[in-house]
Simulated assay, not measured.
Amino acid sequence: MKPLLVSLFIGLPAMAQAGCFGSGEPLFHCTLNGGTKALDICLQGEVALYRFGPAQGTAELLLARPVTGVAMTPWNGIGRHLWEEVTFHNGSHDYLVSYSVDRLATGDAPVTEGRVIVAEGDSEVADLACDAGSVTEADFYPLFEAKLAAGELWCPETQSWGGACN
């Protein structure tokens, strides 16, 4: 385990509770399964956190990754729906969290939908939609900025992170 992650896990019991624990910046939050489970994505400096588990209590899964170790697809600025997604890798499993907002929806406020897709290799293990109306945070732009600050470059032409766009 890298030193950065070791130092992050020193405070694990306090961090295992719901939400973004302490100074973390919330990027995404929703409930699932009728409010019995919660999903949070947070940013603490150069570390992105994925938390899934009971809405109240200890997380079932808590992943901490350097921002350079998290895949992210920012919104391309086109279309009716504003959407972004991030993927946390954990061994043979990937946890893809996404949200979508219909920018042209009528009514008091646009509806934000979210979900997490769990995959093992090329096989989808689970596709869990957030409970209707439960997405209270949905903004991965701070992660985008953190990836840029860490030296990664986003190439809109290829929709990928890497060196200079060619």
Rank of each mutant, 00 (worst) to 15 (best):
P142K: 09
V118M: 06
C155H: 02
Y141K: 07
V135E: 10
S134A: 13
F144M: 04
I117F: 01
E145L: 14
S134W: 07
K147I: 05
G114C: 10
A138G: 10
T158P: 03
P156M: 04
T136V: 09
G121L: 04
A126L: 08
R115W: 11
C155Y: 00
G121F: 09
P156G: 09
A129I: 05
F144W: 11
A150G: 10
A132R: 14
G121D: 11
V125R: 12
V118S: 07
E137F: 13
E124G: 06
D127S: 15
E120G: 12
V118D: 03
A129Q: 14
A129N: 07
V118Q: 12
A126T: 09
A126E: 11
G114I: 07
Y141V: 07
C155A: 03
L143R: 02
A149G: 01
V135K: 07
R115E: 15
Y141W: 11
E120Q: 15
G133W: 02
A149K: 15
E120K: 15
D131F: 11
C130G: 13
L153S: 10
D139L: 10
E120T: 09
P142N: 09
A126K: 08
D122I: 03
V135W: 08
G133M: 02
E145S: 10
S134F: 03
L148P: 00
F144E: 00
L128W: 11
G151N: 08
A126V: 04
A138H: 15
L143T: 02
E120I: 00
S123E: 15
G114Q: 04
A146S: 07
T136G: 01
V135P: 09
A150P: 13
T158L: 00
C155W: 03
P142W: 10
A138W: 03
L128C: 12
A129V: 05
D131Q: 08
D139R: 02
E157N: 09
E137C: 06
C130N: 04
D122A: 13
G133P: 04
Y141T: 14
V116D: 04
D139H: 06
E120W: 04
D139W: 01
I117R: 14
C130E: 01
A132E: 15
E137K: 15
E152T: 06
F144G: 06
P142A: 11
E152W: 07
S123D: 12
A129S: 12
A132Y: 13
A138C: 11
V118G: 00
E124F: 01
A138E: 03
E152F: 03
A138M: 02
E152Q: 15
E157D: 14
E124I: 14
E145D: 13
A149S: 10
E157S: 05
A119K: 14
V116Y: 14
C155N: 08
A138S: 15
V135G: 11
T158Y: 02
K147T: 05
T136F: 08
V118T: 11
D139F: 04
K147A: 07
G151V: 00
